[in-house]
C-alpha cells in the first residue's frame, strides 16, 4: 500500500502548477508583507529598515486596538448568528412544504456582489429618503437615527447586512450536512418516542458537530479580516467608529501612504487569525471525544 504507484515526475507535473500558483500568489506575498512591515516605506520611495519598530508602534496604537475591538464585535455577532442559520437549516431540512424554494431565496444575497449589497443597504439606511427611516417616520418616530452617520450606530448598522449577506452560505452548508444524517437514525428515534425538538438537538446536531466547528472557524476568521461592506458603506467612519482591522490596514497603506506600517498591520492581522483559529479548534476539540 505504501508503494508509490506514480513516478515522482508525475507527481511533480500534477502538483507543480498549483504549487507554483499558491506560492506565487499566496505564500511569497505573505512573506513579503512581513518583510515590508520591518521597513519605513511610503510605497514608492526608498525603504528604510526600522526593525520591529512598526510592531512596537502597533501595540500602542489606540486606533488599531479600537478597530480590533470592532472586529471582535463583528466576529461575536457572526458566531451568534450561526445559531439562527442552523435553526433555519433544521427547519428547511425537515421536509416542510416549499423548502426547495425557500432554500433558493435564502441563497440569493450570496449571489449578489458585495458592492451591490452595500449600495442596496446604503439606500435603505439613507437618513432622509431611506426605506427604513421613512417606515419609522410613518409609524410615528419623529426623529429616527441617521444609522451610518451616527458614530454610535454605524458599526451595528453594518453588521446587519453582513449577517444577511452570509445567511445563504451557512444555511446551505448546514442543510447539506443535515441531509447527510442517516434517515434510519431519525426514524429509530421517532419510534422510541422522541419529539422533533429532541431529534434535532439530540440526534442531528451531534452528528453534524464537525461541520458546525468548521463554520465557527470560518465565521470568526472571516469576520476578523472583513473588509468589503465596511469599506464601501462607511469607509471606517464616522471618525473611525466602524473601522475594523482590515479597513484600518487599507487606510494606512493607501490613504496615508504608509506602506511599511500598513504591512505590519496586515502581518499582525494574519497572526491574529491564526491564533484565533487555533484557539477555536482547541475549545471545540473536547466535543469530538464524546462521540
Amino acid at each position: 500500500m505504501n508503494r508509490l504507484k506514480a513516478s515522482k515526475l508525475d507527481i511533480l507535473i500534477y502538483v507543480g502548477p498549483a504549487l507554483v500558483l499558491l506560492l506565487g500568489i499566496v505564500y511569497i506575498p505573505i512573506l513579503q508583507t512581513g518583510y515590508f512591515g520591518l521597513m519605513e516605506w511610503n510605497g514608492i520611495g526608498q525603504k528604510t529598515f526600522v526593525g520591529l519598530e512598526n510592531y512596537f508602534v502597533l501595540l500602542q496604537d489606540t486606533k488599531f486596538w479600537s478597530s480590533a475591538y470592532h472586529s471582535l464585535i463583528l466576529a461575536v455577532a457572526s458566531i451568534i448568528s450561526l445559531v439562527f442559520y442552523l435553526a433555519i437549516a433544521v427547519i428547511l431540512a425537515s421536509r416542510i412544504k416549499g423548502a426547495n424554494l425557500l432554500r433558493k431565496i435564502y441563497l440569493i444575497p450570496m449571489l449578489l456582489a458585495s458592492v451591490a449589497i452595500a449600495q442596496l443597504w446604503m439606500k435603505i439606511y439613507n437618513p432622509t429618503n431611506g426605506m427604513l427611516n421613512i417606515f419609522l417616520m410613518k409609524i410615528g418616530f419623529e426623529n429616527p437615527p441617521a444609522w451610518l452617520g451616527d458614530a454610535n450606530l454605524a458599526l451595528y448598522a453594518i453588521i446587519l447586512p453582513t449577517i444577511w449577506q452570509y445567511a445563504g452560505f451557512y444555511i446551505l452548508i448546514y442543510y447539506a450536512a443535515l441531509k447527510n444524517v442517516p434517515e434510519s437514525l431519525v426514524e429509530a428515534a421517532r419510534i422510541d418516542g422522541a419529539s422533533s425538538l429532541q431529534i434535532a438537538t439530540k440526534i442531528k446536531l451531534p452528528l453534524i458537530m464537525n461541520v458546525v466547528k468548521v463554520t465557527i472557524v470560518l465565521a470568526a476568521v472571516g469576520s476578523l479580516k472583513y473588509f468589503d461592506l465596511i469599506y464601501i458603506m462607511t469607509g471606517g467612519g464616522p471618525s473611525g467608529s466602524s473601522e475594523v482591522m482590515a479597513s484600518y490596514m487599507y487606510n494606512t497603506a493607501f490613504n496615508k501612504f504608509d506602506f511599511g506600517y500598513g504591512s505590519a498591520i496586515g502581518f499582525f492581522l494574519l497572526i491574529i487569525c491564526l491564533v484565533a483559529t487555533f484557539i477555536i479548534q482547541r475549545l471545540t476539540i473536547s466535543d469530538k471525544d464524546l462521540y
Binding site: N126, G149, D150, G237, P238, S239
Partner: peptide, 16 residues
C-alpha cells in the same frame, strides 16, 4: 447640514 451628514457620500448629498 444634511441629516446624517457623516454617513453620506458627496454624491448622496448632491442628490438632495
Amino acid at each position: 447640514f444634511s441629516k446624517g451628514t457623516n454617513g453620506l457620500s458627496n454624491d448622496e448629498a448632491k442628490v438632495e
